[in-house]
Design a protein around this nucleic acid. Structure first.
Lengths: 359, 359
DNA sequence: CTGAAAGCGCTTACAG
DNA sequence: CTGAAAGCGCTTACAG
């Protein structure tokens, strides 16, 4: 209970001026008063308008520094004629997952170049959360919105577009709404991945995927089926497992399949976590060198596993960058019809996808 | 050149009302006029104040729906007596890297519970960028700031704290500033990791680390030295490599060391990317089963490499959560002296760290 | 070149 | 319970 070094006023001060109430920030008026100039002159100096007498400008700067003045951007945005907040919203699946994080960084880089900040949020595949977060971002008057959608009805955004809020979809297409979208070539990428396995001689190729309500998952499944059909394989009796949401579930699914009566000789995993689960299951069963594995979407350390995992790599940096560029084009006034931009995937052969079927 | 379905007025319209100018959003005044009530009544209804006659409230709701009214939160924040924007700033090393992304998600979860949004930015270890981004976040009047600092002088934040902006440091301590900080037990964690290697019988233990200007790196180096000394090992002649910023550089450094005249029997890597580089180098040299490896900070798939990589795991979720909780405590008025909170690390033995030295 | 008035969309403080 | 006036911190539109 030692006495603090600085003097502590009694409770009477706490009532008149509670200690939780910090000193408020100086405003332009304060600066103007101290500098002995008009409010508008301070505004000009702060905004770098050149037509101010050097002597006045100097006085303003001195006063501003003395008071520790910082302009209030939210007030300035409110009054500005363009009504811009220099803020965009970015709704991702989960800011903490690697794919979302890569998208985020790419968007940030484009936005920061324009002095625009990013309000990011995680949707966790929840359509209700999508609508809630879109709503509060609109209420904050973001200039635009980049959305990796969780829902399957985006007609609620029509009025927002009309009201002047730019909207771009990322990774997944909008539904019931015309808007720009940037997506991977999910269907074709999956088709090429599976064709790669077929070319190595495989006939029993299992599909392991996420829930089909996610459009990318169903597109990739479509590509899988297409590859089977165009090779004359029986797509009807193919081994298919949907709804694999995480590593453990995927691992169990693969373990079951491989231990089953007619184990697949190759596995196509439609997504990162599923690929990792599959690799893990094959390793545990000591089948990793005998069962081929192709994953959709690359991941860190895929090249360090044994065998190294072959994938159809997406390009999240290119996707995020393009989405941001499209958004700013819209914000700058482009009102052409919404378009979908497809970013190609790339086959990365590392070993697991090149394992031949048993002779 | 086909005619668009909707009528297109000529250039005269384009001048009076350019097509890039979207319809502006309705305001409270518009709603009040349509509902035939006062402005303040609309405000009450929008803010859920109960003392409004049900009949009036219904008229307001009808009018608001009809116009597609959305409240302008930035205007409301500007006028509100507490001056809060319900926004916090989060400055990370890089929103795209896994550790930063995990911190981000944890902060988001705490913030969203309070209806607070997060403006995130990447500093890329650049002190200038730190000051620039802090400045613009202050100008946007964020309620608080969570910073993974890049700089080594934070005295510039003293006036911001005084002006009422809450500041919490994350992962690294502030310098020349009193503020809350949430950090891992870097020094002690490193000491325990290296002691773990010593207990396995190692005497030549290499240190591989990031640049020493990063406080966490120097703390971990300190723990490494402490472990050597307390085991009576010669810290002076220890094999030490700093400035390893990425996987490739670390990989080269380890390759050189292991091929050298007195190769280490164990390696302590102070950071994720360095650990991965070390694992990769040992694998390529076919020394992974003969050279022990301990990393600081866990990473995805560490358990799937062969041998699986032992680490001192940090808890980014707990770190981010606590930082956010502390920030909101400050925002709510806590003005006690800044404190440092240390989150313990946990030794995860997976194999690589338990390899004994050659007999 | 400079500044007083009006207003961005809302809440506060105050009458009725 | 309801609303007209004033004002948050700034920019716009307009005089001087």
């Amino acid at each position: 209970m030692s006495e603090p070094p600085s003097p502590r006023p009694g409770p009477s001060r706490a009532q008149a001026e509670p200690s939780t109430q910090p000193a408020s920030r100086p405003t332009m008026r304060d600066v103007a008063a101290l500098a002995g100039v008009g409010l508008k002159t301070v505004s000009r100096v702060v905004n770098g308008v050149p037509s101010v007498a050097p002597e006045l400008a100097a006085r303003v700067h001195t006063a501003a520094d003395k008071l520790g003045y910082r302009p209030n951007l939210t007030a300035s945005h409110l009054r500005r004629s363009d009504g811009r907040t220099a803020t965009i919203g970015l709704l991702l699946e989960d800011v903490g997952n690697p794919f979302s994080a890569a998208l985020h960084r790419a968007v940030e880089d484009v936005a920061m170049q324009r002095g625009v900040f990013v309000l990011a949020g995680s949707l966790d595949e929840d359509p209700v959360r999508e609508r809630t977060l879109v709503s509060t971002l609109i209420d904050r008057r973001v200039d635009g919105l980049i959305i990796v959608p969780a829902g399957t009805d985006h007609s609620y955004l029509i009025q927002e577009q009309r009201a002047g809020t730019a909207v771009v979809f990322l990774d997944r297409q909008p539904t019931l709404l015309g808007a720009d979208a940037v997506v991977s070539d999910n269907r074709d990428g999956a088709r090429r991945a599976v064709s790669h396995l077929i070319a190595a001689g495989h006939r029993r190729i299992a599909y392991l995927g996420d829930k089909t309500s996610i459009s990318t998952a169903s597109d990739r499944f479509g590509g899988y089926l297409e590859a089977l059909r165009s090779a004359g394989l029986d797509a009807e009796s193919a081994v298919v497992r949907h709804e694999l949401r995480d590593v453990e579930i995927a691992e169990r699914a693969v373990t079951e399949l491989v231990r089953g009566r007619q184990p697949p000789t190759a596995v196509f995993a439609s997504q990162n976590l599923v690929t990792i689960g599959a690799a893990r299951a094959l390793a545990h069963l000591a089948m990793a060198d005998r069962t081929a594995l192709m994953g959709f979407d690359d991941f860190l350390l895929a090249d360090s596993l044994r065998p190294a995992v072959s994938v159809m790599a997406q390009d999240p940096a290119a996707m995020g960058r393009l989405a941001a560029q499209l958004l700013f084009r819209r914000i700058d006034g482009d009102d052409s019809p919404g378009r979908t931009y497809v970013i190609p995937t790339r086959l990365v052969a590392r070993g697991s996808g090149e394992i031949p079927p048993p002779a």
